[in-house]
Design a protein around this nucleic acid. Structure first.
Length: 285
DNA sequence: GGTAGACCTGGACGC
DNA sequence: GCGTCCAGGTCTACC
């Protein structure tokens, strides 16, 4: 849940340590509900305030299973991580799962909003999209679900720039929304595809606004861990981990994690970075 | 296939 | 108060 920042992006709502999280969702029926997810013995519990049908219940269970990647087994990763002190805590903490949105459309939009900006801006832009274009939660109309592709597709680039302040990302988001809404782009099928990772990466990079970093981030979310989302943060971490703070490039990041093969992404994601420990004494935060 | 320059935004910083 | 820089990159034009 806390392994990356998604929990901070609406319509997720963090309920605090040991209290799980909430998510406002527009179901296939069009009904907008909020569900709470809490850890339970050997699993999670899901609860809603709203009255829902059996079909809606099944839909929510299916979505939460995807969001928490509950069907994934990480034993192979733990096996190779045990001998690496920097990863030894992963098994103890049951790490490996990375929170994701119910739809890949939402995760692609959010990933594009992480590029070339500060995290605070990513939160602000996501909040703006949700507030302006997401369907209201009937029980609390001030709160909203994530906007559908159809809703975003109906907006103009100027509106997305002016209202949501997406800047140059506005045409990327609009283009994606229109392709998904028209059926030209089927992102949901990519969740279960068996195509090789290299081909899936190429497919993701056909989306305007999705480059090497964004594609690798999305591949990790899709459970493909053989590419690294190398961004400025990764360069900084690797620099302080192995190069005494000297500037490094993508090649150095790739080199340091190459030995983890198909688990590269998870090794990177859950690495116990030296930078975190010494940041307060030697590195400006 | 590699590289330079432009791109929205808003907070931090220096003056 | 103002100008500059830059941040969890990507696209396009050009070579």
């Amino acid at each position: 849940m806390y392994s990356h920042g998604w929990i901070q992006l609406p319509p997720f709502k963090d309920e605090g340590a040991n209290a799980g999280f909430r998510y406002i969702d527009r179901l296939a029926s069009g009904k907008v509900v909020e569900y709470s997810i809490e850890e339970f013995i050997d699993g999670v519990t899901i609860s809603t305030v709203e009255q829902i049908t059996q079909a809606e219940k099944d839909e929510i269970v299916s979505k939460v299973t995807w969001m928490l990647n509950l069907e994934k087994n990480f034993l192979d990763f733990y096996e190779i991580a045990r001998d690496e002190p920097k990863l030894a805590r992963a098994e103890r903490r049951a790490q490996g799962r990375v929170l994701r949105s119910p739809t890949l459309f939402e995760d692609v939009v959010k990933t594009i909003l992480t590029t070339n900006t500060l995290w605070a801006q990513t939160i602000r832009m996501t909040q703006a999209l949700v507030n302006h274009y997401g369907d209201s939660l009937p029980a609390d109309p001030a709160r909203h679900a994530f906007p559908t592709a159809e809703r975003l597709a109906s907006e103009s680039e100027e509106t997305l720039r002016g209202e949501a302040r997406l800047g140059y990302r506005a045409p990327y988001i609009l283009n994606l929304a229109r392709e998904v809404a028209s059926g030209e782009q089927d992102l949901e099928i990519l969740k279960q595809t068996s195509m090789p990772t290299i081909d899936l990466r190429k497919r993701l990079m056909t989306i305007k606004g999705v480059g090497p970093y964004a594609a690798a981030n999305l591949l990790n979310l899709l459970g493909r861990y053989d590419y690294l989302p190398v961004d400025s943060w990764a360069l900084k971490m690797v620099s302080y981990e192995w190069y005494n703070g000297e500037p490094v490039g993508t090649a150095e990041v790739e080199k340091e994690f190459s030995r983890w093969g198909d688990w590269k992404g998870l090794a990177y994601w859950f690495w116990d970075w030296a930078y975190d420990h010494k940041s307060s004494e030697s590195v400006p935060s």
